[in-house]
Design a protein around this nucleic acid. Structure first.
Lengths: 290, 290
DNA sequence: GCCCCGCTGAATGACGTCATGCACAGTCAG
DNA sequence: CTGACTGTGCATGACGTCATTCAGCGGGGC
Protein backbone atom coordinates (compact mmCIF):
# COMPACT_ATOMS: atom_id res chain seq x y z
CA UNK A 1 0.00 0.00 0.00
CA UNK A 2 2.97 2.17 0.28
CA UNK A 3 4.29 3.95 -2.72
CA UNK A 4 6.55 0.99 -3.34
CA UNK A 5 3.49 -1.10 -4.00
CA UNK A 6 2.34 1.25 -6.70
CA UNK A 7 4.64 -0.46 -9.14
CA UNK A 8 3.06 -3.83 -8.48
CA UNK A 9 0.31 -5.18 -10.65
CA UNK A 10 -3.26 -5.28 -9.39
CA UNK A 11 -3.30 -8.98 -8.65
CA UNK A 12 0.02 -8.75 -6.86
CA UNK A 13 -1.37 -6.09 -4.59
CA UNK A 14 -4.42 -8.21 -4.05
CA UNK A 15 -2.26 -11.12 -2.99
CA UNK A 16 -0.74 -9.06 -0.24
CA UNK A 17 -4.14 -8.65 1.24
CA UNK A 18 -4.53 -12.34 1.70
CA UNK A 19 -1.10 -13.69 2.47
CA UNK A 20 -0.14 -14.32 6.02
CA UNK A 21 -3.58 -15.53 6.98
CA UNK A 22 -4.41 -19.13 7.73
CA UNK A 23 -7.15 -19.97 5.31
CA UNK A 24 -9.38 -22.97 4.95
CA UNK A 25 -9.45 -24.74 1.58
CA UNK A 26 -12.72 -23.04 0.66
CA UNK A 27 -11.33 -19.68 1.61
CA UNK A 28 -8.26 -20.29 -0.49
CA UNK A 29 -10.52 -20.98 -3.44
CA UNK A 30 -12.24 -17.67 -2.83
CA UNK A 31 -8.97 -15.81 -2.58
CA UNK A 32 -7.77 -17.50 -5.73
CA UNK A 33 -10.93 -16.55 -7.55
CA UNK A 34 -10.66 -12.94 -6.47
CA UNK A 35 -7.13 -12.73 -7.73
CA UNK A 36 -8.16 -14.24 -11.04
CA UNK A 37 -10.93 -11.72 -11.43
CA UNK A 38 -8.99 -8.87 -9.94
CA UNK A 39 -10.32 -6.35 -12.41
CA UNK A 40 -13.95 -7.14 -11.73
CA UNK A 41 -13.60 -7.91 -8.08
CA UNK A 42 -14.61 -4.49 -6.76
CA UNK A 43 -17.96 -4.88 -8.45
CA UNK A 44 -18.85 -8.44 -7.55
CA UNK A 45 -21.47 -9.29 -4.96
CA UNK A 46 -20.94 -12.03 -2.46
CA UNK A 47 -23.17 -14.41 -4.42
CA UNK A 48 -21.32 -13.73 -7.63
CA UNK A 49 -18.01 -14.42 -5.95
CA UNK A 50 -19.51 -17.56 -4.48
CA UNK A 51 -20.65 -18.75 -7.88
CA UNK A 52 -17.30 -18.01 -9.48
CA UNK A 53 -15.48 -19.84 -6.72
CA UNK A 54 -17.98 -22.66 -6.57
CA UNK A 55 -18.69 -22.16 -2.90
CA UNK A 56 -21.64 -20.99 -0.91
CA UNK A 57 -22.43 -17.36 -0.30
CA UNK A 58 -21.98 -17.51 3.48
CA UNK A 59 -18.47 -18.81 2.92
CA UNK A 60 -17.67 -15.59 1.15
CA UNK A 61 -18.98 -13.60 4.06
CA UNK A 62 -16.97 -15.70 6.48
CA UNK A 63 -13.94 -15.23 4.28
CA UNK A 64 -14.25 -11.49 4.66
CA UNK A 65 -14.57 -11.57 8.43
CA UNK A 66 -11.74 -14.11 8.65
CA UNK A 67 -9.52 -11.46 7.09
CA UNK A 68 -10.55 -9.00 9.72
CA UNK A 69 -13.15 -7.02 7.84
CA UNK A 70 -16.53 -6.13 9.22
CA UNK A 71 -18.22 -8.06 6.48
CA UNK A 72 -18.14 -8.65 2.78
CA UNK A 73 -19.06 -5.08 1.81
CA UNK A 74 -16.17 -3.90 3.93
CA UNK A 75 -13.79 -6.16 2.05
CA UNK A 76 -15.16 -4.97 -1.26
CA UNK A 77 -14.64 -1.37 -0.24
CA UNK A 78 -11.04 -2.24 0.36
CA UNK A 79 -10.83 -3.70 -3.11
CA UNK A 80 -12.25 -0.53 -4.54
CA UNK A 81 -9.80 1.66 -2.72
CA UNK A 82 -6.98 -0.45 -4.03
CA UNK A 83 -7.82 1.00 -7.40
CA UNK A 84 -7.32 -2.15 -9.34
CA UNK A 85 -9.23 -2.12 -12.59
CA UNK A 86 -5.95 -2.28 -14.39
CA UNK A 87 -5.97 0.46 -16.91
CA UNK A 88 -5.18 -1.21 -20.19
CA UNK A 89 -3.18 -4.43 -20.04
CA UNK A 90 -0.74 -3.19 -22.64
CA UNK A 91 -0.83 0.00 -20.65
CA UNK A 92 1.79 2.04 -22.47
CA UNK A 93 2.37 4.96 -20.26
CA UNK A 94 -0.33 7.04 -18.76
CA UNK A 95 2.39 8.07 -16.43
CA UNK A 96 2.15 11.56 -15.07
CA UNK A 97 4.94 12.51 -17.39
CA UNK A 98 4.52 16.05 -18.53
CA UNK A 99 5.88 15.16 -21.89
CA UNK A 100 2.66 13.41 -22.74
CA UNK A 101 0.63 16.46 -22.04
CA UNK A 102 0.11 19.20 -24.49
CA UNK A 103 1.15 22.75 -23.91
CA UNK A 104 -2.25 23.81 -22.68
CA UNK A 105 -2.51 21.04 -20.16
CA UNK A 106 0.89 21.94 -18.83
CA UNK A 107 -0.25 25.51 -18.41
CA UNK A 108 -3.24 24.37 -16.40
CA UNK A 109 -1.03 22.23 -14.21
CA UNK A 110 1.29 25.15 -13.66
CA UNK A 111 -1.65 27.22 -12.57
CA UNK A 112 -2.60 24.48 -10.14
CA UNK A 113 0.76 24.96 -8.51
CA UNK A 114 0.00 28.61 -8.08
CA UNK A 115 -3.25 27.77 -6.36
CA UNK A 116 -1.51 25.27 -4.19
CA UNK A 117 0.88 27.94 -3.00
CA UNK A 118 -2.08 30.17 -2.30
CA UNK A 119 -3.61 27.42 -0.19
CA UNK A 120 -0.42 27.21 1.80
CA UNK A 121 -0.43 30.93 2.29
CA UNK A 122 -3.97 30.79 3.62
CA UNK A 123 -2.88 28.49 6.41
CA UNK A 124 -2.35 31.76 8.24
CA UNK A 125 -5.68 33.56 7.97
CA UNK A 126 -4.48 36.64 9.77
CA UNK A 127 -3.48 38.80 6.76
CA UNK A 128 -6.73 38.04 5.03
CA UNK A 129 -8.76 38.85 8.09
CA UNK A 130 -6.89 42.08 8.59
CA UNK A 131 -7.40 43.07 4.96
CA UNK A 132 -11.07 42.16 5.13
CA UNK A 133 -11.53 44.26 8.23
CA UNK A 134 -9.96 47.26 6.59
CA UNK A 135 -12.01 46.90 3.42
CA UNK A 136 -15.29 46.16 5.14
CA UNK A 137 -14.95 49.28 7.25
CA UNK A 138 -14.51 51.61 4.32
CA UNK A 139 -17.53 53.57 3.06
CA UNK A 140 -17.38 53.85 0.16
CA UNK A 141 -15.04 51.11 -0.94
CA UNK A 142 -13.06 51.92 -4.08
CA UNK A 143 -11.82 48.92 -6.07
CA UNK A 144 -8.94 49.60 -8.39
CA UNK A 145 -7.60 47.55 -11.28
CA UNK A 146 -6.25 48.72 -14.60
CA UNK A 147 -5.74 47.05 -17.97
CA UNK A 148 -5.22 43.33 -17.41
CA UNK A 149 -6.24 43.65 -13.78
CA UNK A 150 -9.43 45.50 -14.65
CA UNK A 151 -11.23 42.20 -15.10
CA UNK A 152 -10.20 41.15 -11.60
CA UNK A 153 -11.34 44.42 -10.13
CA UNK A 154 -14.62 44.16 -11.92
CA UNK A 155 -15.29 40.67 -10.67
CA UNK A 156 -14.42 41.67 -7.15
CA UNK A 157 -16.55 44.76 -7.27
CA UNK A 158 -19.52 42.90 -8.68
CA UNK A 159 -19.69 40.51 -5.79
CA UNK A 160 -18.60 43.03 -3.19
CA UNK A 161 -21.57 45.13 -4.16
CA UNK A 162 -23.85 42.37 -2.98
CA UNK A 163 -22.70 42.69 0.61
CA UNK A 164 -21.20 46.16 0.83
CA UNK A 165 -23.44 49.20 0.55
CA UNK A 166 -21.15 51.37 -1.56
CA UNK A 167 -18.56 49.88 -3.90
CA UNK A 168 -16.90 52.03 -6.52
CA UNK A 169 -15.20 50.31 -9.40
CA UNK A 170 -12.14 52.08 -10.76
CA UNK A 171 -11.16 50.12 -13.81
CA UNK A 172 -10.12 52.78 -16.25
CA UNK A 173 -7.09 54.95 -16.24
CA UNK A 174 -6.78 58.47 -17.46
CA UNK A 175 -6.96 61.77 -15.69
CA UNK A 176 -10.41 61.04 -14.32
CA UNK A 177 -9.01 58.26 -12.21
CA UNK A 178 -7.32 60.55 -9.72
CA UNK A 179 -10.53 62.57 -9.54
CA UNK A 180 -12.52 59.53 -8.64
CA UNK A 181 -10.10 58.44 -5.98
CA UNK A 182 -10.20 61.86 -4.37
CA UNK A 183 -13.98 61.84 -4.56
CA UNK A 184 -14.12 58.48 -2.85
CA UNK A 185 -11.84 59.71 -0.10
CA UNK A 186 -13.92 62.84 0.29
CA UNK A 187 -17.02 60.69 0.55
CA UNK A 188 -15.52 58.91 3.52
CA UNK A 189 -13.51 56.03 2.12
CA UNK A 190 -10.82 54.78 4.44
CA UNK A 191 -9.35 51.97 2.38
CA UNK A 192 -8.83 50.97 -1.24
CA UNK A 193 -8.74 47.53 -2.79
CA UNK A 194 -6.14 47.24 -5.53
CA UNK A 195 -5.40 44.48 -8.01
CA UNK A 196 -1.90 44.78 -9.41
CA UNK A 197 -0.82 42.29 -12.01
CA UNK A 198 2.01 42.34 -14.47
CA UNK A 199 2.73 44.24 -16.44
CA UNK A 200 2.25 46.96 -13.90
CA UNK A 201 0.87 50.04 -15.60
CA UNK A 202 2.60 53.23 -14.67
CA UNK A 203 -0.71 54.95 -14.15
CA UNK A 204 -1.55 52.40 -11.49
CA UNK A 205 1.37 53.62 -9.45
CA UNK A 206 0.23 57.18 -9.96
CA UNK A 207 -3.24 56.26 -8.82
CA UNK A 208 -1.92 54.59 -5.71
CA UNK A 209 0.16 57.66 -4.94
CA UNK A 210 -2.99 59.75 -5.09
CA UNK A 211 -4.79 57.26 -2.88
CA UNK A 212 -2.13 57.44 -0.23
CA UNK A 213 -2.05 61.18 -0.40
CA UNK A 214 -5.74 61.08 0.33
CA UNK A 215 -5.04 58.98 3.40
CA UNK A 216 -6.52 55.80 2.02
CA UNK A 217 -5.24 52.51 3.34
CA UNK A 218 -4.21 50.49 0.31
CA UNK A 219 -4.88 46.75 0.34
CA UNK A 220 -3.24 45.10 -2.66
CA UNK A 221 -3.50 41.73 -4.32
CA UNK A 222 -0.38 41.41 -6.42
CA UNK A 223 1.36 38.57 -8.16
CA UNK A 224 4.37 38.87 -5.90
CA UNK A 225 5.29 40.36 -2.58
CA UNK A 226 8.09 42.16 -4.37
CA UNK A 227 5.94 43.75 -7.01
CA UNK A 228 6.71 47.40 -7.56
CA UNK A 229 3.39 48.27 -5.98
CA UNK A 230 4.47 46.89 -2.64
CA UNK A 231 5.91 50.18 -1.48
CA UNK A 232 2.63 51.87 -2.32
CA UNK A 233 0.58 49.37 -0.34
CA UNK A 234 -0.22 49.20 3.33
CA UNK A 235 -1.09 45.54 3.12
CA UNK A 236 -0.11 43.28 0.25
CA UNK A 237 -1.15 39.67 -0.22
CA UNK A 238 0.57 37.81 -3.01
CA UNK A 239 -1.05 35.41 -5.47
CA UNK A 240 1.04 34.27 -8.39
CA UNK A 241 -0.01 34.56 -12.00
CA UNK A 242 0.74 31.92 -14.58
CA UNK A 243 2.81 32.86 -17.58
CA UNK A 244 2.89 29.59 -19.48
CA UNK A 245 0.61 30.87 -22.18
CA UNK A 246 0.79 33.86 -24.42
CA UNK A 247 -1.30 35.81 -21.96
CA UNK A 248 -1.08 35.69 -18.21
CA UNK A 249 -3.53 33.65 -16.20
CA UNK A 250 -4.70 35.03 -12.88
CA UNK A 251 -6.52 32.20 -11.21
CA UNK A 252 -4.81 32.65 -7.86
CA UNK A 253 -5.47 36.40 -7.67
CA UNK A 254 -9.11 35.81 -8.51
CA UNK A 255 -9.32 33.11 -5.90
CA UNK A 256 -7.70 35.36 -3.35
CA UNK A 257 -10.19 38.05 -4.19
CA UNK A 258 -13.05 35.69 -3.45
CA UNK A 259 -11.43 34.63 -0.21
CA UNK A 260 -11.18 38.27 0.77
CA UNK A 261 -14.83 38.72 -0.04
CA UNK A 262 -15.70 35.75 2.10
CA UNK A 263 -13.77 37.22 4.99
CA UNK A 264 -15.46 40.56 4.41
CA UNK A 265 -18.82 38.91 4.76
CA UNK A 266 -17.83 37.89 8.25
CA UNK A 267 -16.97 41.47 9.05
CA UNK A 268 -20.05 43.04 7.54
CA UNK A 269 -22.86 42.40 10.00
CA UNK A 270 -25.60 42.81 7.47
CA UNK A 271 -24.04 40.77 4.70
CA UNK A 272 -26.43 37.89 5.02
CA UNK A 273 -29.43 40.14 5.04
CA UNK A 274 -28.29 41.92 1.91
CA UNK A 275 -27.76 38.65 0.11
CA UNK A 276 -31.20 37.40 1.00
CA UNK A 277 -32.70 40.68 -0.01
CA UNK A 278 -30.99 40.44 -3.37
CA UNK A 279 -32.28 36.93 -3.82
CA UNK A 280 -35.81 38.12 -3.26
CA UNK A 281 -35.68 40.98 -5.71
CA UNK A 282 -33.86 38.77 -8.20
CA UNK A 283 -36.64 36.23 -7.98
CA UNK A 284 -39.27 38.93 -8.22
CA UNK A 285 -37.67 40.39 -11.32
CA UNK A 286 -37.01 36.98 -12.86
CA UNK A 287 -33.39 37.92 -13.21
CA UNK A 288 -32.02 34.43 -13.44
CA UNK A 289 -33.15 31.25 -15.06
CA UNK A 290 -32.74 28.80 -12.22
CA UNK B 1 -15.66 4.84 -26.48
CA UNK B 2 -13.41 4.05 -29.34
CA UNK B 3 -9.74 3.57 -28.88
CA UNK B 4 -9.28 7.22 -29.68
CA UNK B 5 -11.07 8.02 -26.48
CA UNK B 6 -8.61 6.07 -24.43
CA UNK B 7 -6.39 9.08 -24.21
CA UNK B 8 -9.15 11.20 -22.75
CA UNK B 9 -9.61 11.63 -19.05
CA UNK B 10 -12.41 10.00 -17.10
CA UNK B 11 -14.68 12.99 -16.88
CA UNK B 12 -14.15 13.79 -20.51
CA UNK B 13 -15.22 10.31 -21.50
CA UNK B 14 -18.13 10.59 -19.14
CA UNK B 15 -19.21 13.77 -20.80
CA UNK B 16 -19.44 12.01 -24.14
CA UNK B 17 -21.97 9.68 -22.67
CA UNK B 18 -24.33 12.47 -21.85
CA UNK B 19 -23.88 15.07 -24.52
CA UNK B 20 -26.31 15.20 -27.33
CA UNK B 21 -29.25 14.30 -25.14
CA UNK B 22 -31.88 16.77 -24.19
CA UNK B 23 -32.06 16.69 -20.44
CA UNK B 24 -34.33 18.26 -17.89
CA UNK B 25 -32.77 20.58 -15.29
CA UNK B 26 -32.82 17.84 -12.68
CA UNK B 27 -31.21 15.43 -15.09
CA UNK B 28 -28.53 17.98 -15.87
CA UNK B 29 -27.77 18.20 -12.18
CA UNK B 30 -27.40 14.46 -12.07
CA UNK B 31 -25.13 14.40 -15.08
CA UNK B 32 -23.11 17.22 -13.60
CA UNK B 33 -22.78 15.37 -10.34
CA UNK B 34 -21.67 12.19 -12.03
CA UNK B 35 -19.00 14.06 -13.93
CA UNK B 36 -17.79 15.67 -10.75
CA UNK B 37 -17.58 12.33 -9.01
CA UNK B 38 -16.39 10.49 -12.05
CA UNK B 39 -13.95 8.38 -10.10
CA UNK B 40 -16.54 7.10 -7.64
CA UNK B 41 -19.44 6.96 -10.03
CA UNK B 42 -19.19 3.26 -10.90
CA UNK B 43 -19.71 2.40 -7.25
CA UNK B 44 -22.50 4.74 -6.34
CA UNK B 45 -26.04 3.52 -5.85
CA UNK B 46 -28.97 5.46 -7.17
CA UNK B 47 -29.76 6.85 -3.74
CA UNK B 48 -26.19 8.00 -3.24
CA UNK B 49 -26.19 9.75 -6.58
CA UNK B 50 -29.52 11.28 -5.67
CA UNK B 51 -28.14 12.62 -2.40
CA UNK B 52 -25.03 14.01 -4.03
CA UNK B 53 -27.07 15.71 -6.70
CA UNK B 54 -29.76 16.85 -4.31
CA UNK B 55 -32.56 15.18 -6.22
CA UNK B 56 -34.87 12.27 -5.56
CA UNK B 57 -33.92 8.71 -6.23
CA UNK B 58 -36.56 8.16 -8.92
CA UNK B 59 -35.07 11.04 -10.85
CA UNK B 60 -31.84 9.10 -11.05
CA UNK B 61 -33.64 6.08 -12.43
CA UNK B 62 -35.45 8.24 -14.93
CA UNK B 63 -32.15 9.80 -15.89
CA UNK B 64 -30.76 6.40 -16.75
CA UNK B 65 -33.69 5.38 -18.90
CA UNK B 66 -33.74 8.79 -20.55
CA UNK B 67 -30.25 8.03 -21.79
CA UNK B 68 -31.46 4.80 -23.26
CA UNK B 69 -30.36 2.37 -20.60
CA UNK B 70 -32.55 -0.34 -19.20
CA UNK B 71 -32.29 1.17 -15.74
CA UNK B 72 -29.82 2.63 -13.34
CA UNK B 73 -27.82 -0.57 -12.86
CA UNK B 74 -27.43 -0.72 -16.61
CA UNK B 75 -26.05 2.80 -16.68
CA UNK B 76 -23.70 1.98 -13.84
CA UNK B 77 -22.46 -1.04 -15.70
CA UNK B 78 -21.62 1.28 -18.55
CA UNK B 79 -19.71 3.50 -16.15
CA UNK B 80 -17.77 0.50 -14.93
CA UNK B 81 -16.88 -0.61 -18.42
CA UNK B 82 -15.64 2.87 -19.16
CA UNK B 83 -12.87 2.10 -16.72
CA UNK B 84 -12.87 5.42 -15.03
CA UNK B 85 -11.57 5.00 -11.51
CA UNK B 86 -8.98 7.68 -11.79
CA UNK B 87 -5.51 6.62 -12.44
CA UNK B 88 -5.35 10.27 -11.54
CA UNK B 89 -1.79 11.59 -11.55
CA UNK B 90 -1.90 13.76 -8.51
CA UNK B 91 -5.08 12.09 -7.50
CA UNK B 92 -7.61 13.74 -5.21
CA UNK B 93 -6.23 11.29 -2.71
CA UNK B 94 -4.42 14.06 -0.95
CA UNK B 95 -7.55 14.67 1.03
CA UNK B 96 -6.80 13.06 4.37
CA UNK B 97 -5.72 16.36 5.82
CA UNK B 98 -8.80 18.21 4.72
CA UNK B 99 -10.06 18.43 8.24
CA UNK B 100 -6.94 20.24 9.21
CA UNK B 101 -7.41 22.88 6.59
CA UNK B 102 -9.54 25.90 7.03
CA UNK B 103 -12.54 26.68 4.94
CA UNK B 104 -10.66 28.92 2.59
CA UNK B 105 -7.94 26.41 1.96
CA UNK B 106 -10.52 23.79 1.20
CA UNK B 107 -12.12 26.12 -1.29
CA UNK B 108 -8.79 26.56 -3.04
CA UNK B 109 -8.28 22.82 -3.14
CA UNK B 110 -11.74 22.34 -4.57
CA UNK B 111 -10.87 24.82 -7.27
CA UNK B 112 -7.76 22.83 -8.00
CA UNK B 113 -9.97 19.86 -8.75
CA UNK B 114 -11.87 21.97 -11.22
CA UNK B 115 -8.65 22.89 -12.96
CA UNK B 116 -7.60 19.28 -12.97
CA UNK B 117 -10.77 18.34 -14.76
CA UNK B 118 -10.12 21.10 -17.24
CA UNK B 119 -6.67 19.66 -17.86
CA UNK B 120 -8.27 16.32 -18.56
CA UNK B 121 -10.67 17.87 -20.97
CA UNK B 122 -7.83 19.53 -22.82
CA UNK B 123 -6.34 16.13 -23.60
CA UNK B 124 -8.52 16.40 -26.65
CA UNK B 125 -7.52 19.71 -28.23
CA UNK B 126 -10.02 19.45 -31.02
CA UNK B 127 -12.91 21.44 -29.50
CA UNK B 128 -10.57 24.25 -28.50
CA UNK B 129 -9.00 24.38 -31.93
CA UNK B 130 -12.38 24.42 -33.57
CA UNK B 131 -13.58 27.19 -31.31
CA UNK B 132 -10.42 29.19 -31.87
CA UNK B 133 -10.80 28.89 -35.61
CA UNK B 134 -14.35 30.15 -35.49
CA UNK B 135 -13.49 33.06 -33.26
CA UNK B 136 -10.33 34.05 -35.06
CA UNK B 137 -12.18 34.19 -38.33
CA UNK B 138 -14.82 36.61 -37.12
CA UNK B 139 -14.42 40.32 -37.89
CA UNK B 140 -15.44 41.90 -35.65
CA UNK B 141 -15.43 39.53 -32.73
CA UNK B 142 -18.12 40.22 -30.14
CA UNK B 143 -17.35 38.97 -26.62
CA UNK B 144 -20.36 38.54 -24.37
CA UNK B 145 -20.56 38.16 -20.62
CA UNK B 146 -23.12 39.59 -18.22
CA UNK B 147 -23.14 40.21 -14.49
CA UNK B 148 -20.78 37.72 -12.83
CA UNK B 149 -19.41 36.66 -16.19
CA UNK B 150 -18.73 40.23 -17.26
CA UNK B 151 -15.34 40.10 -15.59
CA UNK B 152 -14.45 37.03 -17.60
CA UNK B 153 -15.58 38.62 -20.81
CA UNK B 154 -13.60 41.72 -20.04
CA UNK B 155 -10.42 39.81 -19.34
CA UNK B 156 -10.84 37.82 -22.52
CA UNK B 157 -11.58 40.88 -24.60
CA UNK B 158 -8.62 42.77 -23.19
CA UNK B 159 -6.14 40.17 -24.30
CA UNK B 160 -7.99 39.26 -27.47
CA UNK B 161 -7.65 42.86 -28.56
CA UNK B 162 -3.92 42.45 -28.60
CA UNK B 163 -4.01 39.91 -31.37
CA UNK B 164 -7.37 40.44 -33.03
CA UNK B 165 -8.03 43.62 -34.97
CA UNK B 166 -11.60 44.21 -33.87
CA UNK B 167 -12.91 42.94 -30.55
CA UNK B 168 -16.18 44.24 -29.17
CA UNK B 169 -16.86 43.76 -25.51
CA UNK B 170 -20.50 43.23 -24.60
CA UNK B 171 -20.55 43.21 -20.83
CA UNK B 172 -23.71 45.08 -20.04
CA UNK B 173 -27.27 44.04 -20.48
CA UNK B 174 -30.22 46.20 -21.33
CA UNK B 175 -31.91 46.97 -24.57
CA UNK B 176 -28.73 48.28 -26.13
CA UNK B 177 -27.24 44.81 -25.98
CA UNK B 178 -29.34 43.46 -28.81
CA UNK B 179 -28.51 46.56 -30.83
CA UNK B 180 -24.82 45.98 -30.39
CA UNK B 181 -25.07 42.35 -31.36
CA UNK B 182 -26.97 43.22 -34.50
CA UNK B 183 -24.45 45.93 -35.28
CA UNK B 184 -21.61 43.49 -34.89
CA UNK B 185 -23.33 41.04 -37.21
CA UNK B 186 -23.99 43.79 -39.71
CA UNK B 187 -20.33 44.76 -39.54
CA UNK B 188 -19.40 41.28 -40.64
CA UNK B 189 -19.10 39.23 -37.45
CA UNK B 190 -19.49 35.51 -38.00
CA UNK B 191 -19.03 34.24 -34.46
CA UNK B 192 -19.60 35.33 -30.88
CA UNK B 193 -17.68 34.42 -27.77
CA UNK B 194 -19.91 33.93 -24.75
CA UNK B 195 -19.12 33.41 -21.08
CA UNK B 196 -22.04 31.87 -19.25
CA UNK B 197 -21.72 31.29 -15.54
CA UNK B 198 -24.28 30.67 -12.83
CA UNK B 199 -26.55 32.17 -12.08
CA UNK B 200 -27.45 32.43 -15.72
CA UNK B 201 -29.07 35.78 -16.35
CA UNK B 202 -32.21 35.63 -18.36
CA UNK B 203 -31.06 38.47 -20.54
CA UNK B 204 -28.07 36.41 -21.54
CA UNK B 205 -30.38 33.88 -23.11
CA UNK B 206 -32.22 36.66 -24.91
CA UNK B 207 -28.95 38.03 -26.19
CA UNK B 208 -27.91 34.64 -27.48
CA UNK B 209 -31.24 34.27 -29.24
CA UNK B 210 -30.58 37.55 -31.00
CA UNK B 211 -27.09 36.44 -31.89
CA UNK B 212 -28.33 33.25 -33.47
CA UNK B 213 -31.04 35.10 -35.33
CA UNK B 214 -28.28 37.23 -36.78
CA UNK B 215 -26.55 34.10 -37.96
CA UNK B 216 -23.69 34.32 -35.52
CA UNK B 217 -21.96 31.13 -34.51
CA UNK B 218 -22.03 31.05 -30.72
CA UNK B 219 -18.99 29.70 -28.91
CA UNK B 220 -19.70 29.37 -25.20
CA UNK B 221 -17.60 28.79 -22.13
CA UNK B 222 -20.00 27.59 -19.45
CA UNK B 223 -19.62 25.96 -16.11
CA UNK B 224 -21.24 22.78 -17.30
CA UNK B 225 -22.04 21.10 -20.56
CA UNK B 226 -25.58 20.93 -19.32
CA UNK B 227 -25.98 24.61 -18.65
CA UNK B 228 -29.19 26.10 -19.99
CA UNK B 229 -27.20 28.03 -22.56
CA UNK B 230 -26.11 24.83 -24.24
CA UNK B 231 -29.05 24.80 -26.59
CA UNK B 232 -28.26 28.35 -27.62
CA UNK B 233 -24.65 27.51 -28.39
CA UNK B 234 -23.09 26.06 -31.47
CA UNK B 235 -20.01 25.00 -29.56
CA UNK B 236 -19.83 24.76 -25.78
CA UNK B 237 -16.75 23.97 -23.75
CA UNK B 238 -17.31 23.35 -20.06
CA UNK B 239 -15.17 24.63 -17.19
CA UNK B 240 -16.54 24.19 -13.70
CA UNK B 241 -16.93 26.99 -11.20
CA UNK B 242 -16.24 26.55 -7.53
CA UNK B 243 -19.05 27.16 -5.11
CA UNK B 244 -17.33 26.52 -1.82
CA UNK B 245 -17.32 30.16 -0.87
CA UNK B 246 -20.06 32.71 -0.60
CA UNK B 247 -19.37 33.80 -4.16
CA UNK B 248 -18.49 31.57 -7.06
CA UNK B 249 -14.93 31.20 -8.21
CA UNK B 250 -14.29 30.92 -11.91
CA UNK B 251 -10.68 29.92 -12.21
CA UNK B 252 -11.31 27.18 -14.72
CA UNK B 253 -13.42 29.35 -17.04
CA UNK B 254 -10.75 32.03 -16.95
CA UNK B 255 -8.09 29.47 -17.68
CA UNK B 256 -10.11 28.08 -20.54
CA UNK B 257 -10.48 31.58 -21.90
CA UNK B 258 -6.72 32.00 -21.97
CA UNK B 259 -6.31 28.63 -23.60
CA UNK B 260 -8.75 29.70 -26.28
CA UNK B 261 -6.76 32.88 -26.78
CA UNK B 262 -3.60 30.88 -27.13
CA UNK B 263 -5.24 28.73 -29.79
CA UNK B 264 -6.54 31.83 -31.52
CA UNK B 265 -3.03 33.16 -31.76
CA UNK B 266 -2.13 30.11 -33.79
CA UNK B 267 -4.99 30.85 -36.14
CA UNK B 268 -4.35 34.54 -36.54
CA UNK B 269 -1.41 34.86 -38.88
CA UNK B 270 -0.48 38.32 -37.76
CA UNK B 271 -0.80 37.74 -34.03
CA UNK B 272 2.89 37.82 -33.36
CA UNK B 273 3.36 40.99 -35.33
CA UNK B 274 0.60 42.72 -33.45
CA UNK B 275 2.05 41.74 -30.13
CA UNK B 276 5.48 43.05 -31.05
CA UNK B 277 3.94 46.21 -32.35
CA UNK B 278 2.15 46.73 -29.08
CA UNK B 279 5.35 46.17 -27.17
CA UNK B 280 7.04 48.89 -29.14
CA UNK B 281 4.38 51.49 -28.66
CA UNK B 282 4.05 50.48 -25.01
CA UNK B 283 7.75 51.05 -24.54
CA UNK B 284 7.61 54.32 -26.43
CA UNK B 285 4.76 55.59 -24.30
CA UNK B 286 6.26 54.29 -21.09
CA UNK B 287 3.08 52.40 -20.40
CA UNK B 288 4.53 49.90 -17.99
CA UNK B 289 7.10 50.05 -15.27
CA UNK B 290 9.25 47.10 -16.25
C1' DG C 1 -58.35 32.62 -16.48
C1' DC C 2 -58.34 27.85 -17.33
C1' DC C 3 -56.67 23.57 -18.70
C1' DC C 4 -53.26 20.45 -20.21
C1' DC C 5 -48.87 18.58 -20.07
C1' DG C 6 -44.33 17.64 -18.54
C1' DC C 7 -41.43 17.45 -14.48
C1' DT C 8 -40.59 16.21 -9.88
C1' DG C 9 -40.74 13.99 -5.33
C1' DA C 10 -43.05 10.87 -1.67
C1' DA C 11 -44.70 6.37 -1.03
C1' DT C 12 -44.88 1.60 -2.18
C1' DG C 13 -43.71 -3.01 -3.41
C1' DA C 14 -40.59 -6.39 -5.76
C1' DC C 15 -36.07 -7.87 -5.75
C1' DG C 16 -31.30 -8.65 -4.53
C1' DT C 17 -27.77 -8.72 -1.01
C1' DC C 18 -25.81 -9.96 3.18
C1' DA C 19 -25.21 -11.94 7.91
C1' DT C 20 -26.87 -15.18 11.16
C1' DG C 21 -28.68 -19.64 12.89
C1' DC C 22 -28.86 -24.36 12.20
C1' DA C 23 -27.95 -28.97 10.46
C1' DC C 24 -24.79 -32.15 8.55
C1' DA C 25 -20.28 -34.23 7.26
C1' DG C 26 -15.53 -35.10 8.27
C1' DT C 27 -11.74 -35.53 11.65
C1' DC C 28 -9.29 -36.52 15.68
C1' DA C 29 -8.77 -37.77 20.65
C1' DG C 30 -10.07 -40.36 24.28
C1' DC D 1 -17.42 -46.14 19.47
C1' DT D 2 -18.39 -41.73 21.12
C1' DG D 3 -17.87 -37.01 21.90
C1' DA D 4 -16.19 -32.64 20.63
C1' DC D 5 -14.65 -29.70 17.13
C1' DT D 6 -14.11 -27.66 12.63
C1' DG D 7 -15.70 -26.60 8.17
C1' DT D 8 -19.34 -26.23 5.04
C1' DG D 9 -23.96 -25.51 2.87
C1' DC D 10 -28.92 -24.45 3.40
C1' DA D 11 -32.49 -21.58 5.13
C1' DT D 12 -34.03 -17.38 6.98
C1' DG D 13 -34.74 -12.68 8.19
C1' DA D 14 -33.14 -7.81 8.13
C1' DC D 15 -31.71 -4.46 5.15
C1' DG D 16 -30.69 -1.87 1.02
C1' DT D 17 -31.63 -0.97 -3.78
C1' DC D 18 -34.42 -0.06 -7.55
C1' DA D 19 -38.64 0.68 -10.54
C1' DT D 20 -43.35 1.95 -10.49
C1' DT D 21 -47.34 4.57 -9.15
C1' DC D 22 -49.62 8.60 -7.80
C1' DA D 23 -50.24 13.30 -6.48
C1' DG D 24 -48.65 18.07 -6.59
C1' DC D 25 -46.65 21.88 -9.01
C1' DG D 26 -45.44 25.16 -12.51
C1' DG D 27 -45.21 26.74 -17.34
C1' DG D 28 -47.18 27.31 -22.02
C1' DG D 29 -51.27 27.26 -25.13
C1' DC D 30 -56.09 28.11 -26.00
Amino acid sequence: MTTADEALGPSARLLRLFEGNRLTPTQRRIAHTLVQHAADSPFLSSVEVAELAGVSQPSVTRFAVALGYDGYPDLRKQLRDLGLSESAPGGPAESPGDALRNEQQRAVLAEIDNLRRLAELLADPEPVVRAARLLAASRPLPVLGLRAAAAQARGFAYFAGKVHPDVRLLDEGGSMLADRIEQAAAAGASALMCFALPRYPRELMDALAVARDCGLCVVTVADSAFAPVSRMSDLLIPAAVGSSLVFDTACAPMMLGRVLLQAMCDELPDAEGRLECFEQTAAARGLFLD
